[in-house]
Amino acid sequence: MMHRVRGVVVHGKGEPVSVETILVPDPGPGEALVDILTCGVCHTDLAYQQGGINDEYPFLLGHEATGVVAAVGDDVTEVAVGDRVILNWRAVCGQCRACRRGEPQYCFDTHNATQKMTLEDGTVLSPALGIGAFAEKTLVAAGQCTRVSEAADPAAVGLLGCGVMAGIGAAMNTGGVQHGDSVAVIGCGGVGTAAVAGARLAGATTIIAVDIDDDKLARTRNFGATHTINSRNQDPVAAIRELTGGNGADVVIEAVGRPETYEQAFYARDLAGVVVLVGVPTPDMKIELPLLEVFGRGGALKSSWYGDCLPSRDFPMLVQHYLNGNLDLDGFVTERIGIDDVEAAFEKMHTGNVLRSVVEIS
């Protein structure tokens, strides 16, 4: 059976999105059909529209989603009909070399639904990050569904599906922030602000937010920043050192993805400290560092992909922290919009005043 539903589609590079009828098949083996409740508007969706991911148009956009399982295919044991789930783009295979060595968060063979969703004329859609959740229903691999409590606001916890998890995980998983650590976060958009929240949740006592926008800096205070630095007005390396006894921070998280801010992160960490790159650079960017400085400072230079998360482990834990009042996911929801408002939400991203617009679908 094919389900006719509305979804947000982009047909070509830079073209405006449109809400169209799409066809979603019943789930086959290992697949799940999900009724979407909410889906956050992420910069990755904008990147798909602008041709920054690949050219496999048309795309069915949306991926930061919460939904309810409507049907499952054969051999599905992870979830059942009626389960409230957050969707993820790391459905681990269980068989690759990372999974076999007990590190499924680095799975090299994550998978998506086998069957394809299409337009009414049969044109195959490419779902964003293998999800495609700006739609009333979507088809995913069952492993892309993580069961969570129905007590949580779906608009808030769905954001764990991408950007918020990336930031929190950069602090807690990749950076390994510990109680009493000092942490600096360079770049305070959605991911950087989530890194601030993750640092507080992990027990850091000095949390320094760095950005060039005073409004963004002020906002980080609500998520746990103890100090803020406007790097237009201050040398951020010197300022971070001054706030950490002249030593530098134990963990510095770069959430911009530019060579100049990465260099700031490198020099702003303490000896044997950790630098985490979670900002996404473009393919042409390069960085040059004195090799002796890399050697002499020790510590670790890490990159963080999806916050090094394991959804089955991290989503329920973070949702419980949210329900217990320890993690303010509600604060990331700037506005709630309809499925017809995605293009306007993309425009608002350019102002920098929106952490997340969230589409409420059902």
Rank of each mutant, 00 (worst) to 15 (best):
D109M: 13
D109V: 09
T110F: 11
T110G: 10
T110Y: 15
A113I: 07
K116R: 15
M117T: 12
D121T: 08
T123I: 13
T123K: 12
T123N: 08
V124R: 11
V124N: 04
V124C: 13
A128E: 10
L129I: 11
L129W: 10
G132P: 04
G132K: 07
E136I: 02
K137M: 06
V140W: 00
V140L: 00
V140G: 02
A141P: 06
A142V: 06
G143D: 00
V148F: 05
V148D: 01
S149E: 01
E150Q: 14
A151V: 09
A151E: 15
A152L: 05
P154A: 15
A155E: 08
A156V: 01
V157C: 08
G158L: 06
L159K: 00
C162K: 02
V164T: 01
A166R: 15
G167T: 04
I168N: 13
G169L: 07
A170D: 10
A170M: 04
M172G: 13
G175N: 04
G175T: 08
G176D: 08
G176L: 07
V177F: 04
Q178F: 13
S182Y: 09
S182W: 06
V183K: 03
A184M: 09
A184V: 02
V185N: 06
G187N: 03
G187C: 06
C188D: 11
G189P: 13
A194Y: 01
A195I: 02
V196I: 09
V196D: 06
G198P: 00
G198H: 00
A199V: 03
R200D: 15
L201T: 01
A202V: 00
A202G: 03
G203I: 01
G203C: 11
A204M: 05
T205W: 14
T205S: 07
T205Q: 12
T205E: 14
T206G: 11
T206R: 15
A209Q: 00
V210A: 10
V210I: 15
D211C: 00
D211T: 00
D211M: 00
D211Y: 00
D213F: 02
D215Q: 14
D215Y: 10
A218I: 02
A218G: 14
R219F: 12
T220K: 07
R221M: 09
N222V: 09
F223C: 02
F223Q: 01
G224V: 11
G224Q: 12
G224M: 10
T226Y: 05
T226P: 07
H227C: 07
H227E: 11
T228E: 13
T228Y: 09
T228W: 13
I229F: 03
I229Y: 09
N230D: 06
N230K: 02
D235W: 05
A238Q: 15
A239M: 02
A239K: 03
E242F: 10
L243H: 01
T244P: 02
G245C: 12
G246H: 03
G248D: 11
A249E: 06
A249N: 04
A249H: 05
D250Y: 03
D250V: 06
V251I: 14
I253R: 12
I253N: 05
I253G: 08
E254D: 12
